[in-house]
């Protein structure tokens, strides 16, 4: 079974001009999260969809999602955790309790606020997890990355050739995820799940991302995303 986990538990504090989480804001004529969900809904390999939202926005999300066509696919709205790592843990528990995790099952976890995800990315993630157990999305950075411990002075300039920017999806074998989470790793202290994964000794392969697979986290991003969609319609 291939599950999509749409990570929408952020409260969007950076999108200061709005009074609701950024994933529910409109991009064109639809909420951002709907654009994202549609890509998973139409992918024939995705069988079930979990939508992980903030506890206080769960009812709103259920109301909104009830108006959209999931093309017959089963979906569930659940409350997320304090960070992405906890949200993944909650998703794994929900899947196991509701549907029971089987060998070969996988979770494709994707930020709700990256609506420009492509079918190619989803398909490559599925193929990579089948072969290697986990996949992350990476893109070469155009800018050099600087390290500063105090935010005022430069400490390090890592070599550009080994640096990539991380995007989503991040995808995992659910059996391995369950195994890792069963060891009691400290989830609330770690916001980046791939770091936990690597620390535990698992392999994680990279899938080539897309520059346009952008994250809409501030008003500028939303303007860029709206501009991308303003091309004359076909």
């Amino acid at each position: 079974m291939i599950y999509a986990g749409i990570l929408a538990a952020g409260l969007g504090v950076r999108m200061h001009r709005q009074d609701m989480p950024k994933q529910f804001l409109l991009l064109g004529e639809k909420p951002i999260i709907i654009h994202t969900l549609e890509q998973f809904t139409v992918n024939p390999n995705i069988e079930k969809i979990l939508i992980i939202v903030p506890e206080e926005w769960k009812l709103y999300a259920e109301d909104m999602l009830s108006q959209y066509d999931f093309m017959g696919k089963e979906y569930a709205v659940i409350s997320g955790g304090v960070n992405k790592t906890e949200s993944i843990d909650i998703s794994v528990c929900y899947i196991d309790e509701t549907w029971q995790i089987q060998d070969g099952d996988m979770l494709i976890a994707h930020d709700a606020i990256r609506p420009f995800i492509t079918q190619r990315l989803i398909d490559e993630h599925i193929a990579t997890v089948k072969k290697h157990g986990a996949a992350n999305t990476a893109i070469v950075t155009n800018d050099a990355i600087l390290v500063s411990k105090n935010g005022a002075s430069l400490d390090e300039v890592p070599s550009h050739e080994h640096l990539y920017a991380e995007q989503t999806p991040q995808s995992y074998s659910l059996a391995k995820l369950k195994e890792l989470l069963g060891t009691g790793v400290p989830l609330h202290k770690e916001s980046e799940f791939p770091r936990l994964w690597l620390k535990a000794g698992y392999e994680m392969r990279l899938v080539q991302g897309e520059y346009f697979n952008m994250k809409i986290i501030n008003p500028y991003d939303l303007e860029v995303a709206e501009a991308l969609l303003k091309e004359r319609n076909a």
Binding site: G28, E29, H35, E38, Q39, V42, P115, F116, T118, F212, L228, L229, E231, R232, N233, A234
Partner: peptide, 29 residues
Amino acid sequence: MIGRIYRLMDTKRIEMKQREIKCTGDSVL
């Protein structure tokens, strides 16, 4: 739904554009 279209912009120049796909009750995606 967001789709991608590969348009010829000029001689030998093709660019990918994002655009919304509109579906009706008679549409086949």
